[in-house]
Amino acid sequence: MDPIKIEASERSPEIDFDFAANRYVVRGESYPEDVSAFYGDVLDKLEEHLDGVSDGDVEFTFELIYFNSSTAKVLMSLFETLDECAENGATVKVIWKYDEDDDNMLELGEEFAEDLEHASFELKEIPVE
């Protein structure tokens, strides 16, 4: 599948999906006008691709500054997709980056991670100058 690269906007994050390398990044702010319109197609493609992955390494990095509640629902379903991929045999690593002074983003990452049973989870603090 061709890689997907979408630049960040004021209200939507950068998307960088490299299907061949199984490296995925979502970075920035997320409160799009229409969550389904922004994420629908991209995540359908990801799900379709990951359905066929049952070995090797998969790495998904979240580096979010802010996301609204509609995005939270998308993230929850994305975590489920990643965990299923790990259950099917791939080595899935979820990386959650957050600014060191952002306790809220840290807590949200931990909350989403609670439900991972097969994928591994790593918190990464980004130092703030």
Partner: peptide
């Protein structure tokens, strides 16, 4: 049209 989760947030 959203997640129905706004007030919990």
């Amino acid at each position: 049209k959203g997640a129905g989760v706004g007030f919990i947030e």
